[in-house]
Design a protein around this nucleic acid. Structure first.
Length: 586
RNA sequence: GCGGCGGUCGUCUAGCCUGGACUAGGACGCCGGCCUGCCAAGCCGGAGGUCCCGGGUUCAAAUCCCGGCCGCCGCACCA
């Protein structure tokens, strides 16, 4: 059982991961570098299977509204200025020169002096600290200059240039920047989800907890664009929600937290959306998908909940955020995904910084004819009377509301614009008909975002069991890195020959499978149990007589006999259709 | 970054306090052979160690001292 604070199990899982080749610290022969991990042969395959399961849930099942792209890891600084990462991903830090403790300079100034310091330059903050003789709040020592620490990795683009580039801290900006093009190739339809799986880098100050907090890792992200005025997008969301049935989510709301609660409550997805617990419907839908996905990794419902972030805990771009937490050994609750309502923040920012129009056009069902009053002035008179000022006056007149102009003309017989008096007989108010076919707007975004390496750990942690003093990794069959093992009962030439043929047959059918004839049969079962091979096939003396072999279930250790000729199909059904062993026996 | 603790074959570990006889021991794992009729059986043989790195003290350092790196815990930090 997985219990928070189960240190022993954590050690065992990490030891297994290293010993059998799931993952280990990078650059080991040079002493290692904190925050970097290699994936080993089994780790790569497990990760691949987890990612493909993610694609099943987040892309394939919604393929009518979700597409996947791939964008570069390195981006020009402009992109990260626009995204707000250069400003917000950078913390102003002061260090105590005596005890070495570090503090957020702006927080310290606000807390101790009551001066708003957010957004000030490091120099300005240093000045404030000096003027008020602010000292270390812990030991009273003197403070250093204020420095900026940025979590973005910096590089240059091209040789010998000042052209600064950054390694992306999330894949999301790739989707925002490419939105217009993807929207085009997706036939200009909303809602539109753009997914990406890729590596990101964050220069963490002090990464720890092994593979749980890395400086470089893989993110599986979805930016889901929708119309904020019609979030249900006609029937699209309704249909998708309908297919979920009565999926329940465990949620600890910010509201509940502020009331001092720390236990999540259960909500139906629709209920959570309709009651406004989740402020935008699509965020709720993707949380339900996230729930199902993590369940498929072998995590039980009660070992998972969604934790709403308090306003001050949220990222700069988010209007509402939920973290999906999973219970793991030692660390307790671990964040495996974040679900953020990013509103139109990112697209607006990129519009501003790029100068491109990233809005989408929404046609009205029927074009609307609106009547609009406009102010007309006799242009000849205006030009001759005011000469060079005429153009400015004309522009100023256009800004005026026609109704109020009409009113003032009626009252006074003239209007004044920019000091120019225009009599009523030079002004005409006319009513014009205008046809409105639709409008442009900036889509809003709901974003589910997963840390893949964390999922890898979570999967191993929840699969780890012991039986009779041996390790049995009860990985869900679909994501097991090796699907089957083939053994001759003993190393008898006749059995070996048949076993190797059976093994090749599985390989030809596309399975990852191992063959082993070393040591006792029990030892071989143990070896493959430890890396979570779901099924073992044993060729024995009965095989010589009737052409049957045994299938042994990793989780129950039970065996059934099947015909050798049915092997590939039986394995396929066992792995991908989750058919029980008993049902495979003829 | 600060403080505490730690780092020895692939893995887990003994040895460190009290320096020498340590050619660094064990278990598991791994490789070869034998054996083996279903759950880490047995026998024979074998490979495998920069004792984290660098420097210092000493006739002599895995062992003592200093610095660095890495890990864990606490603090701080953390979209």
């Amino acid at each position: 059982m997985s219990v928070a604070g189960d240190v022993d199990k954590y050690e065992k899982v990490m030891e297994l991961a290293k010993r059998r080749g799931f993952f280990w610290p990078s650059y080991e022969i040079y002493g290692g570098v904190a925050g970097f991990y290699d994936l080993g042969p089994l780790g790569v395959r497990l990760k691949e299977n987890i990612v493909s399961l993610w694609r099943e849930h987040f892309i394939k099942r919604q393929q009518h509204v979700v597409v996947e792209i791939e964008t570069p890891i390195i981006g020009p600084s402009r992109v990260y200025e626009a995204s707000g990462h250069i400003e917000h991903f950078t913390d102003p830090i002061v260090e105590c020169l005596k005890c070495g403790r570090k503090f957020r300079a702006d927080h310290l100034i606000e807390e101790k002096l009551g001066i708003k310091a957010e957004g000030l330059t490091p120099e300005e903050m240093t000045k404030i600290i000096r003027e008020h003789d602010l000292r270390c709040p812990v030991c009273g020592g003197p403070l250093s200059e204020v420095r900026r620490f940025n979590l973005l990795f910096k590089t240059t683009i091209g040789p010998y240039t000042q052209n600064v580039g950054y390694l992306r801290p999330e894949t999301a900006q790739g989707m925002f920047v490419a939105f217009k093009r993807v929207y085009e190739v997706s036939r200009q339809r909303l809602p539109l989800g753009i997914a990406q799986v890729g590596r990101v880098a964050r220069n963490e100050i002090s990464p720890r907890q092994g593979i749980m907090r890395l400086r470089e890792f893989t993110i599986a992200e979805l930016e889901f664009f929708f119309d904020p005025e019609d979030p249900w997008q006609g029937g699209v969301l309704d249909e998708l929600l309908g297919r979920l049935g009565d999926t329940k989510l465990r949620i600890l709301t910010a509201d509940a937290k502020m009331r001092g609660k720390d236990k999540p409550e259960e909500y139906g997805v629709r209920e959570a959306i309709e009651e406004g617990v989740i402020t935008t419907p699509w965020l709720g839908y993707w949380m339900a998908i996230a729930r199902d996905f993590v369940l498929d990794l072998g995590v039980s419902y009660s070992d998972m909940y969604f934790d709403e972030k308090l306003p001050e805990e949220r990222a700069h771009y988010a209007a509402q955020t939920f973290d999906q937490l999973v219970r793991v050994s030692r660390l307790g609750w671990l964040e495996v995904s974040g679900h953020a309502y990013r509103t139109d923040y990112d697209l607006s920012r990129h519009m501003k910084y790029s100068g491109q129009d990233l809005r989408v056009f929404k046609p009205l069902k029927e074009p609307k004819i609106v009547e609009k009053k406009i102010v007309l002035v006799d242009p000849r008179w205006l030009g001759q009377t005011f000469r060079k000022k005429a153009k400015d006056i004309m522009n100023a007149l256009r800004e005026l509301d026609a109704e109020s102009v009409e009113k003032r003309l009626a009252e006074k017989g003239y209007i004044e614009v920019l000091g120019a008096r225009i009599p009523a007989d030079k002004v005409k108010i006319v009513t014009k008909k205008e046809k409105i076919t639709g409008k442009k707007f900036i889509p809003h975004v709901a974003e589910p975002s997963f840390g893949v390496e964390r999922l890898l750990f979570v999967t191993l942690d929840h699969a780890y069991t012991e039986r009779d003093g041996r390790v049995v990794l009860k990985l869900p069959r679909r994501i097991a890195p090796v699907k089957a093992a083939v053994f001759p009962l003993v190393r008898d030439e006749r059995l070996v020959k048949i076993a190797r043929e059976a093994w090749w047959r599985l390989l030809d059918a596309g399975f990852y499978a191992v063959y082993d004839d070393d040591g006792s049969i029990g030892r071989r079962y143990a070896r493959v149990d430890e890396i979570g091979v779901p099924v073992a096939i044993t060729v024995d003396y009965q095989t010589l007589e009737d052409g049957t072999v045994t299938l042994r279930d990793r989780d129950t250790w039970k065996q059934v006999r099947i015909n050798l000729s049915d092997l590939v199909d039986a394995v396929r059904r066992f792995i991908y259709e989750n058919t029980s062993l008993e049902k495979l026996a003829p």
